[in-house]
Write a protein that binds this DNA or RNA. Structure first.
Lengths: 343, 343
DNA sequence: ATATTTTACGCAATCGATTGTAATTTTAAA
DNA sequence: TTTAAAATTACAATCGATTGCGTAAAATAT
């Protein structure tokens, strides 16, 4: 790779016998420069294949036009969709994204955040890892005067901008659907309760029981069953109970629901007639299992759009007195074969 | 968001009554600065919550420590895995990733590339969009002295670093497997032939026919069938032929294979006994369809690792005479239920 | 034709970190 | 004790773009 000296505004200025400041103004379409020279400058810039050095520009302007995103894993449908949604909006505004993966590890998450602070990003967008136990690093972001937007998995106690799903409502609807479908003993596979999203999903589950006057059976609630393997394990336990459930709400993810389905198939238990299954997140595969899995769509791409728009809205707004906004997106229950007991 | 004046090396220097240059050297662990003052500086920097301004640093050093990635879509398993793989490596080296999506659109791809050149990224990693017809924009990258690495979908005529799969070999193995499994009339769903990967996959298909002395039947080759919908459409055509195929190699993707499976199911054609199906890319869902789909794993995360390592290898290497490297990764045939005719 | 307002451009400082060179201090050698 | 060598630290330029301020030139008004 040969070193190429890239053209700067000084090169353009010299060639035209003018000052760099005029060149800069012209390229920023300032009204302070004559239309004719402006044209000439732009033409010359083009000829010399000039590209503005964003580093210098941003250094001078004290911004980076960059947004940092910290997520557990990029290669997970939900997250890559959110990122796609963020990118859609930021790209048009000339902002860049820096993506970091925390790998569900609290320490790596701290590292990621620090890296981004180092980068002087204008905003950090984060969905905290399941492993997170304190939020000093997020407070640190705020202390550096960097905008912080949390989405989906949020630290509730921190007053920041948030874009979330209405998990309570979604769970409530899912469980109601099961109850109305004739399922009597509905189990819950729950996720780490330090994450508010999982707490809320449990809350929705309980709320539905209350609404329909169905008693909650503690032994049907399985903790920490949020991967395919853990979901399968939990299911084996549940199905070997003296009084096994006739439906399982895998509130953590479709992966977990898939684990349930696998176990049911392996044990020769018919879905949905003997066991109803409901997942969460509308992963692409949930549609193509047999039977297909009832799940909850979180509008992930839209969520990403919302996050980005929220940021641009905020930077246009200097009013520091406004309360941090929380935007809640209503998920949608997608009813599929795995919960249609009587059809 | 209140404006916070961030501490600079000058603040630290002033507080300690020394020069910024010493501070800079200390923080870069230069041997030119006394151990004691170095410690003191580091301690003070920490106290003042100092974070180096990467913009200034990189501007001065004439680099950006940033790698730009252009892919068709981030929310596609293969690509998000490659990115995850790239990130794994670059993160540790203190490099950042900027992700752009071309959306399979040639013009947006050009825009993305220009944005990245603007950003003065140190390297651009790209998998070209299906829609690409010329590569002037990529030549432009090279003209700017920016390292260019192509992966998977590459423009062969451009002499750049490349990380590819051995598509010919993989296809050859897949089709051989079908032939050996007793399938007689094997159809091919092929992708846009302007992309070399699809040409190569076709080549592998033909190669297998030759190797086993099986005549190629032109009407069993369906062009441009590279989405689920197009795959389904192609399948309907194939299955309504007077002499329909008894196996379909969806060389474009598992999505296409899924389309095949759907149509077969809808028409009551039994897979794998009446119709064998082989996909490509080992998407996560291919394992959970019924029957599960035989496919080809591309080691996508490893591919990402390889891309990143290649970059770091190259920047350590000033020898401009070396030929551009091409690294070929051997994909693996994953045999599953959809092609086990006689089991 | 002169005074006044606009317009257009130049000058120079600035953003924050890095680095070659010069100056100073410390250490070691004579 | 003097001197040479080595180790520290200071000074100042630099990376490239931006921008407040000042001034010359052009346009308008008197």
């Amino acid at each position: 790779m040969k070193k190429v000296k890239r053209t700067t505004i000084y090169d353009i200025a010299e060639k035209l016998g003018i000052t760099a400041s005029s060149v800069s103004r012209a390229l920023n379409n300032s009204s302070q420069v004559n239309e004719k020279t402006k044209e000439l400058i732009i033409k010359t810039a083009d000829e010399l294949n000039y590209k503005r050095n964003i580093l210098a520009s941003n250094l001078r302007k004290g911004q980076s036009k960059t947004i940092g995103v910290v997520i557990p894993r990029i290669n997970q449908n939900f997250f890559s969709n959110v990122i796609a949604g963020i990118e859609e909006v930021t790209y048009q505004k000339g902002y860049n994204l820096i993506i970091c993966q925390s790998g569900e590890d609290h320490n790596k998450e701290i590292q990621c955040v620090n890296t981004l602070i180092n980068q002087h990003v204008d905003c950090i967008v984060i969905s905290v890892s399941a492993d997170s136990y304190d939020y000093q690093h997020l407070q640190n972001v705020l202390d550096h005067g960097i905008q912080l937007i949390q989405f989906d998995r949020v630290a509730e106690e921190l007053e920041t901008l948030k874009v979330i799903n209405d998990n309570v409502q979604a769970s409530y609807e899912a469980v109601s659907h099961l109850i109305e479908g004739g399922y009597k003993r509905i189990a819950l596979l729950e996720g780490p309760q330090n994450l508010s999203i999982f707490k809320q999903r449990k809350e929705g589950y309980l709320k539905a029981f209350k609404a329909y006057n169905v008693p909650v059976i503690d032994e049907l609630i399985v903790e920490n069953a949020w991967t395919k393997e853990l979901g399968a394990e939990g299911t084996r336990k549940l199905l070997s109970l003296p009084q096994p459930p006739d439906a399982i709400f895998a509130s953590t993810s479709d992966f977990s629901a898939l684990g349930v389905l696998d176990v049911a198939n392996a044990m020769g238990i018919k879905v949905p007639s003997e066991l109803g299954i409901c997942g969460y997140a509308n992963e692409s595969f949930s549609e193509i299992t047999s039977p297909s899995i009832t799940t909850i769509d979180q509008f992930s791409v839209y969520m990403g759009n919302t996050v980005a728009n929220l940021f641009f809205q905020e930077i246009g707004n200097n009013d520091t007195t406004t309360k941090p906004k929380i935007i809640s997106i209503k998920p949608e229950l997608i009813i599929r074969g795995s919960t249609l007991k009587n059809k």
